[in-house]
Structure formats: C-alpha cells, structure tokens
Amino acid sequence: MSDATAHANPGVYYVPHGTKWPIVGSFGLLFTLGGAAFWLNEHAAGPMVMALGVAIILFMVFGWFGTVIRESVAGVYNKQVDTSFRMGMMWFIFSEVMFFAAFFGALFYARALSVPWIGGEGDGALTNFFLWKGYAPAWPTNGPESIGGAFETIPAWGVPLLNTLILLSSGVTITIAHHALRAGKRKPLMIFLGLTILLGCTFLWYQAHEYMEAYKELNLTLGSGVYGSTFFMLTGFHGLHVTLGTIMLIVIWLRCARGHFDRDHHFGFEAVAWYWHFVDVVWLGLFLFVYVL
C-alpha cells in the first residue's frame, strides 16, 4: 500500500495531463546530435549547436525529473505506478545490456574469427596466403598492417584489478546504504551512499589515468587496430556509464539529504542502485574479456 496523501486516489492509476518536457527533449536531441554531425563534418557551427543541445537536454532532465519528484513526494503515485517505473527501469537496463552486447560481440568476433582467419587459421588459409602473407594471428593485435603502430597493453593485474575491487566494493556500499534506508537509518545511509560516490569517482580517476598512460606512453589509442577499437569502445562506453551512474548517485544523495525517500517508498534510489549494479557487472565482463584473457 502506498502512503497516499489527500491528493491521491489510491484506486486510480495516475495519468498526467500534458507535459512540455518531451518536446523540449526532442529539440535537445536534435541539436545535440545534429550539432555533433556538423562538427564531425568540420562545420564551424557544430560545437555551438551541440552545446546548445546539451544545455536543452539538461534543462529537460531537470524539469522532467523535478516534476516527477514533486509528484512522487506529494504521493500521487500508487503501488501500480511504482511497478510501471520499475519495469521501465528494468527494461531500460536490459536495452543497455544489449548495447554492450554488440561491442562484446565485436570483440569475440575479432578474437575468435577475424584475426585467426586473417592469420591463416581454419578457413583463412587462402586469405592469409594471398593477402596477408607473414601475418601471424595473435591477440592483442592491430592487424596485418599494424594500424596505429606498435603499442603495448595495460596489464590486468595493476590498475584494472584495483578498479575491479573498487567497483565491487561500491556494489557492497550501495547495498549497505539500501539496507540502511530500509531500516530507516539516515546516517549510515548518507555515509555509505557518499562512499559509493567516492568509489565511483576514484574508479573514474584511475580510468582517466589509465587512458592517459595508454595514449602517452603505450601508444595504445582508439586507432590501434581492432584491439584499440574494442578496448576503447568497450571501456569508454563503460566509463561513460559510470560517469552517468555517479551523477545519478549524487542526485540521489542530495535527495536523501532532503529527506526524500522513506523505508518503503524509494523507487528512485533502487533504480539508481540497479543501474550501478549493472555497470558493475559490465565491468566484470570487461575485466575478464578485455584485460585478463
């Protein structure tokens, strides 16, 4: 049962009447992506248009979420609405999983099929003989033409291992925070949520460091053949998600500080926690398939 206020009719599903945020968001998307496309095509106006678009999207996010938070706090959402939100978040995370699956698929394809074939294994004997003679399959590789020049890789057991531990412990801290929330204990909630944010930031700091080292010292870049491509696209999109997750955590922390959630009414918190766990699991996949193996 939701703790409905006087405003809400608990028997009835809340259907909002009209909203301007989506159309604002569409303009934001158009300007952001259109601006980016102009930028890529070396149009001077591109960055400006894109910045405008991002600003509009931020405006939209604040406005839209603000409305939802106000409604939530006012208690107009009943249990059923809460379930809709939960399903929405779950399936959104599933779509994100499939997005990463495309890049993992590319990694597996390159490692298991294209590189061995170019290197003459299995069905690739003729390919190697006629086109890439002398190229021996290996991983990591930047291909028979050494696209991007010789490079070194980042050893798994240094910073990546550390980052694994950091993310894993952040999964623990956010769970503790969640338990605290459910037990109605504000203080541990704030502390452990805060810790999670710190761990997220530390992860990002190390990740940034690792990228810098890769570019400056190891000559490992986005252009380092298929290894560089898969490495940076996977870790890059993951890093982007960590960044997003951290921002979401910060928002949740602020909302907690304002006393927004209560013991059994805190979808916003759980959504962010799910997201954080998702980011965590993706990292485990990355650690295993990108760094270790």
């Binding site: 074939w117 069905d123 690739g124 004997a125 003729l126 390919t127 003989f129």
Partner: peptide, 10 residues
C-alpha cells in the same frame, strides 16, 4: 609456390 590446399570453402 605453396598455393595451400584447403579442406573447405573459406
């Protein structure tokens, strides 16, 4: 010259 012989279609 070593045109390799292959068991199947590549």
């Amino acid at each position: 010259q070593g045109v390799p012989s292959m068991p199947s279609n590549g």
